[in-house]
Design a protein around this nucleic acid. Sequence first.
DNA 1: AGATATAATGGTTGCGCTACCATGAATAGC
DNA 2: GCTATTCATGGTAGCGCAACCATTATATCT
Lengths: 346, 346
Amino acid sequence: MSETINRPGRRIARPATVTLKHVAERAGVSPITVSRVINTPDAVSEALREKVGRAVEELGYLPNRVAGALASAESRVVPVIVPSLSNAVFIEVIQGVQEVLEVAGYQLLLGNTQYDLQREQDLAATLLGWSPAGVIIAGLRHTDRTRAMLQAWRRPVVEIMEHGTRAIDMNVGLSHYKAGDAMGEHLVSRGYREIGFIGGRLKADYRALHRYKGLERSLARHGLRRRPPFTHESKSSPQLGGDAFMRALDASPDLDAIFFANDDLAVGAILRAQREGIAVPKRVAIAGFNGFGIGELVQPSLTTIVSPRQQIGQIAANKLIARMQGRESGAASVDVGFTLRVGEST
Amino acid sequence: MSETINRPGRRIARPATVTLKHVAERAGVSPITVSRVINTPDAVSEALREKVGRAVEELGYLPNRVAGALASAESRVVPVIVPSLSNAVFIEVIQGVQEVLEVAGYQLLLGNTQYDLQREQDLAATLLGWSPAGVIIAGLRHTDRTRAMLQAWRRPVVEIMEHGTRAIDMNVGLSHYKAGDAMGEHLVSRGYREIGFIGGRLKADYRALHRYKGLERSLARHGLRRRPPFTHESKSSPQLGGDAFMRALDASPDLDAIFFANDDLAVGAILRAQREGIAVPKRVAIAGFNGFGIGELVQPSLTTIVSPRQQIGQIAANKLIARMQGRESGAASVDVGFTLRVGEST
DNA sequence: AGATATAATGGTTGCGCTACCATGAATAGC
DNA sequence: GCTATTCATGGTAGCGCAACCATTATATCT
């Protein structure tokens, strides 16, 4: 039996990279010591820290996070999975998350499901392959496999935006149903009786649908007419809000108030009303949802429901970090609530 | 010489994970074959694809991207480094990037420098440690080390937002100087003579400063008075725009036109003027920069410069992917230009 | 002084995967 | 019918780092 002559494997050298080992040689210490200087500088003497620091400088060493993540089976990365990037709500949530993660030294990996649960599942599978330290994901509604995958995973998961009882792990959000109900109560208390709802993609954006359902309950409670929502299939924008507003008034001239699924649409309606000479709220009242700043500046100012969006992101990130660092243990659910901001438009 | 009895190393088992090897055993093939089924399914027979696919399903295998990235020295991740997330401009750019990357199977890693070049440098160093496939970074202005780092790196880099000649590698953007000049020409052609500029954080947001410089050049060309910019230190918002507008008019009642650094400020000024009963453009003209949709809806509609933000992101991502896939080779610079959208506010 | 505790450093292994080459099977060419 | 060429699959090594324990050197105690 002859010796194997050919020794397969990597023979071609990669482009030269500076690694821990090179730094260690330069500094005359062991690689593991270099690792410690970088990751847990407190566990190492001042002299070494300096010596190694100098070698790092001289060689221009950049730690390879990928190798570190493989060795430790954890990367300092947190995927944030949202349904849309064109909706400012999610942007503000992402901002809140990013602020908190950055300080703690974590990177944010962005996932956009485009309101597609299948895509969400694929995204989750891919992103879990990065051994992230935790996951933040919008919504409580997922495919069974997504739920199973996240549940089987041993790291913290925070579901955000809506508040509910059947969370995978942790949950930070608010009840959109209650928010819709609250707006209904407000409109009714102001004397409006013919109340409509305008929103888009209600099948995909089921949180908006919950707001509608909440409104419906309120209307039912007062024995008022419940109308099907005026809906459309394009993404929300002020432009679209203005158009949908005109169409709705055309189709149902008896409307005396309209609850829009979000502020983008509602602000568009107010600006359009202004141009068309439609008196708000005299002819028809307008209400929104979100609490964007622009709602306070238009004339009349917008009645809306303010959700603490940035705060949702911050809380979610903080809960994640607390768990990752071993502080705080149990799962937990936070209802961040909402506030009704009454403007001149109702 | 005695044998080493103690064999240090990893002895504690990790939480059981399903790996390539397990899938391979289950499917009765070699690990490398499983890898191929997953990464290059075309290079493998139909029968194997099915057999392996079944094993993957049954075991619920999730590929470990970290290990893959280490072995191949490349991860399908692209960091996007921007100075701010509260500015909608960057959000739209990110959207454009994300759209394109997603289709090509890349993940977006988010970096926020908060207009701090030192932070940008640290971020770049950290993010390069992820062996990303390429980098997209806002701006042409960086610390020397950042430039050196990115230049020494062997992968594609796209600098976005502004267009210039001294790019590290590729560049997609527009000339903010020319944009400011163009707006100056417009205002002068409309007969305005006392033209001011309102913007915030001009030291950090040097692109806004370039717009001011462009305006200045235009004013100089026509022998008009050049005023220092009215500036402030908080982040831009319509609220702030309204306030700054009132203060500027107070301080310099002779102003007959104001060029705002961005549309957020300008729209705020228009809405504030409306509330205060200040006639726009009769008493004072207002112009912005960006071309956000809301500018077309306010009354009077806003004169502004439209920059193709989403397109910048898309082009940048496409150039990156082209290079990563070996199509297209040289560096290249794209000036996406801008258009003046004349509204009722000037 | 001797024993013990504490702190600082090092050696070895393996994380899970892909690059590389080798090999065997199937097909084509003459 | 034999060799040349593709095609499909496998074997081995190593990517760069951190986990684990061992081994010193140093401080603290009795």
